[in-house]
Amino acid sequence: MDGQTGKSQRAIISVFGRDRIGIIAWVSGRLQEYSINILDINQTILQGFFTMIMIVDLSPASVEVAELARTLEQEGKERGLQVNVQHEDIFNFMHRI
């Protein structure tokens, strides 16, 4: 966090879209397949709009952040959801000194 890049294996997954049944089940199911551990979930519904932020640990995972990002973004789009998967450093660099 103090400027070392690439040390952490944590990523932030954010999901936005119209609320419906099974969004979290879909994301967590996919994560389990890749052996990715969920560290924290924050989820709200605002006027029918689903917002979820998930912090995950990729160190035991079978994929890289970039590949996971591509997969979830694509599958999310098919479900009408905007999904972003980003290495946590981009947030740490921006918001923490």
Binding site: M1, R10, I12, S14, D40, F91, M94
Partner: peptide, 15 residues
């Protein structure tokens, strides 16, 4: 390592 990011911070970066 503790997670210290607030959801608003993550949303700001995304915006």
């Amino acid at each position: 390592m503790k997670i210290t990011l607030a959801p608003q911070e993550i949303l700001q970066t995304l915006d």
